[in-house]
Each structure stands twice: as structure tokens, then as C-alpha cells.
Design a protein around this nucleic acid. Structure first.
Lengths: 229, 229
DNA sequence: TAATCCGAAATCGTATACAATATCGTGCAC
DNA sequence: GTGCACGATATTGTATACGATTTCGGATTA
């Protein structure tokens, strides 16, 4: 549905986007090593391009670069998870209020289309895509607020959140939070800034509390799993 | 005073830091083109390394990468300036409150040493260095709050702020804001979170209002200056 | 004179080649 | 049998080479 060719983009950006999508859709597990030759083979480009792409992803914290050891898909810690949502809690409510004050019909349509696409993806069983669209909703709010700088920060935090949710989500099947987005749209459409701000604040709190943030998961988990077999 | 060799760092990071310092100290004017061959010559490394360094700086928004045209020292717009300080205003006051609640004697000493170094730099006429240290103070507060993620975001915003201040500062000679930092330290030492938060909020507001953010400066300015000659 | 159209030179984007470092299996000592 | 040293292999870090794109100056023309 989105085969738009950005001719102005460099090859490394395309590879970075493809890898980011794979990571978000959880098709590459956190902790996986991304061998430069291997990835280069997949996308049919040289290591030069791959290295640039990996550096971009490292800046987004989707992969971790270890000197002389290579790139690994990021494995966010519990502390990092809390911090990411704390940062979002500080930025997004205010953005939502600003957005409410600037909403146009066009903006409303864009937000609604995000929700619709998310529902469609969910119905088709593409939870990964639904998650990504759900995140895009938040970025869109910052765009409507006309705050490029904060929008970019939020985009990065949302990307990290996707990874975190994929790792720590408790009731995966649910993803029922689109209710929250629906209520938000209504408040935004009514230009009720105060309500929209409050709804976003609660929405982010809900997201955080729906995560299972007890210390464990990372290395120990895979070890015990391996022992079970 | 800080010739610490980080052996774990890659060559491109060292180049990036060196370039960042030069940009912050205003030794390279905004808008200047950074020719890859030229920069490589200066630091005695190949274009491969330079390109990686420039990509890092681009992510920090200290340089702008234009496809097939090269890298240019960033020239923050007025809108960007406002947005950067808006973002800081959303993040830093809360960080300051958290920091107040966690302050230790060691943290206090570090903050004080920053102030002292800043005064020393000012006395020596190194306004660039003073500005950088003044910014580091803010990053340190986030570190004390033990919020790695937000600390990193603030570090980037502070770096961009340095560039913005260098561009739009009205009463350059003053830089008297160290008073604000001094008051902040006192509040932090007393673990008075509410006061510290308020002080930081006002400090950031002061900074923003002390900038000359009328539309102009960028291209037109240099043009008219050229015409005068 | 001013505008436009080439074409050479400069510069960037990508691929390949070589050097430095880490990884991992093998053999040795205990 | 276990632990450690060491060398072959694999992988990353950096330099160089080549092709693609842009830039800029001069010639041409209205």
C-alpha cells in the first residue's frame, strides 16, 4: 500500500527502514547479531551501505553497536522501558493539548485513517503492523502540534516503545487501547485541549502499567528455556 | 585537563567529538560546508571515517547532510530554536525535581566543580568553553536524576542550544546566568525539589527570552553584510 | 549585455581490498 | 576430565578505487 519511492533517500536509509520494520514486527529477535556480510547479501548492497544503516539504527537505539563485535538487535532493559515511558509522559500530553488547539479537518481525517488502518491490520491478524500504526498515531499528534523537534524525539521514543511492548507486553491479544485513541480523537475534534491532554496522560500510564516490568526476561530467560528442552 | 583516551571508541567518534567542539566554540561558522577530503586531511583519516563522523553529527543535528551535495554546519532556524527550548522546558524541570530528591554529596561536588570551571573559563575569556560547561551542568542534573534516556535527549538538546545561543544571543558579554545555576545548586543541596523545579523552569524561560528571535539572520544577513563591503 | 547551454573539474555514493581484532576449536599440560 | 594456551578462521575497522552527480566557468547566441 505504500510503495512510495523516495528518490532523494540514500541506499542506507532504505536498508535501515527495512531492518527497522523487521525489528518492529519482531521478525528478528532482540539480541540477534546482525552480521554485516549476511545483511548485505540479503539486500544486495555492500558492507559500506550496511554499516551506515546500522549506525542510523544505533542512533535510534533499535540496535546496539559493540566495537569490534558487531551490531545486535537492541534488548531494552526494564529500567530503559520505564524511562522511555517517563519521557513520553513528559512530552506527549502537552503536545496533545497543542494539537487540540490547532486541529483541522484534514488532520482529523489523517488520525482517523490511522485508526482505521490499525483496525484493519488487527482484523487481518497483523499485530505487528497494528502496533506500528498505533505508534504512528502518537507521532501524528506531535506533527499536528507543529513541533518538528519534539515530533522527532517522540518518533524515536515510539519506535523504542514498540520494541519494549513486543518484549514486555502482558495481554498481547488485547491491544484494545485503540479505545483510548478513539476517545482522544473525539477530544481533539472538539478542540478540548484540557481533556485531550488528560486522556493522553492516562493513556500513557495505562500503557506502562500494562507492561510486565519485573526483572527477568533478558539472558536468564532464554537460558532456562534452553534448559527445558 | 581532559586528555582521557577512550580506547573503546572508534576513530569516527573521536573525529565527531573534535568537530562538535569546533562547531560549539564557533570556530566553524553555521552554514559552512564540510568537505570530506578536506576534513579527512585535517584529522589524517580516510573519507570512510569522516563520513561516519558526519553521520553521527547529523543525528545530533549539528550538521545537515544533503544528498550528493555534502555536509554543512547546521544553521538552526528561529522555529527550531523555540522548539528546542520548548522541549527542554518540558523535560528539565521534572528532572531537576527528581535530582533534588536523589542528591548526594558527591553529586553536589560535581555540580559545583562545573560552576567553578565555568567561572574560570569566563575569567580566561574562553566564552565558548564556558558556554559548553554551562550546558554540561544541565546534562549533569539529568544524570543525577538517574534517567539515562532523558539525559541523552537533554544532552542533544543542550548541544543544539549551544549552537542556537551562539547564533541568537543578544547580550553575549553577560552570560551571567551562572547566578541561576548557583541558586539551583542551593535548592538541590537542600533537597528542595519544588523550588529546584521552579528555578529550572524560570532559568530556561530566561534563556529563551534572552535570545533575539526575530526572523532574519540566516541567509539575508550574510548577504547584506557582503553588500556593505 | 544577459541568458543559456555545454563540458571539465570537483565532490559525493558505493564497492572492493587490506589490516586489526575477536571468536572458536584443538591440543597440551596437569 | 578439566582448564588453559594458541593458532586458524571469521568478522569488523579502515583505506583506496571507481562510478554517479553536482558544480562552475567559458563559449555561444539572441
Amino acid at each position: 500500500m505504500a510503495p512510495k519511492e523516495k528518490a532523494t533517500d540514500t541506499a542506507s536509509t532504505k536498508v535501515a527502514e527495512a531492518l527497522a520494520e523487521a525489528i518492529h514486527e519482531h521478525r528478528i529477535a532482540p539480541g540477534t547479531k546482525l552480521n554485516e556480510d549476511e545483511v548485505g547479501e540479503v539486500y544486495g548492497v555492500s558492507r559500506t551501505v550496511i554499516r551506515a544503516a546500522l549506525q542510523q539504527l544505533a542512533h535510534q537505539r533499535l540496535v546496539e553497536l559493540k566495537r569490534n563485535r558487531g551490531a545486535f538487535v537492541a534488548r531494552p532493559t526494564v529500567k530503559e522501558a520505564r524511562e522511555v515511558f517517563e519521557a513520553r509522559a513528559l512530552l506527549e500530553p502537552t503536545m496533545t493539548r497543542h494539537a487540540a488547539e490547532r486541529m483541522t479537518e484534514a488532520d482529523l481525517a489523517v488520525l482517523q485513517s490511522h485508526i482505521d488502518a490499525e483496525h484493519a491490520a488487527l482484523a487481518a491478524g497483523q499485530t505487528g503492523k497494528a502496533l506500528q500504526l498505533s505508534g504512528q498515531f502518537h507521532v501524528e499528534v506531535a506533527r499536528i502540534a507543529d513541533q518538528d523537534t519534539i515530533e522527532e524525539i517522540i518518533a524515536q521514543l515510539v519506535a523504542r516503545s514498540s520494541l519494549i511492548i513486543a518484549l514486555y507486553w502482558q495481554r498481547r491479544a488485547a491491544l484494545c487501547e485503540s479505545n483510548a485513541h478513539h476517545a482522544l480523537i473525539k477530544a481533539l475534534a472538539n478542540k478540548d485541549g484540557a481533556l485531550a491532554e488528560e486522556l493522553m496522560k492516562n493513556h500513557l500510564l495505562d500503557l506502562l502499567t500494562s507492561l510486565d516490568l519485573r526483572e527477568q526476561t533478558s539472558a536468564p530467560q532464554s537460558l532456562s528455556e534452553a534448559l527445558k528442552v
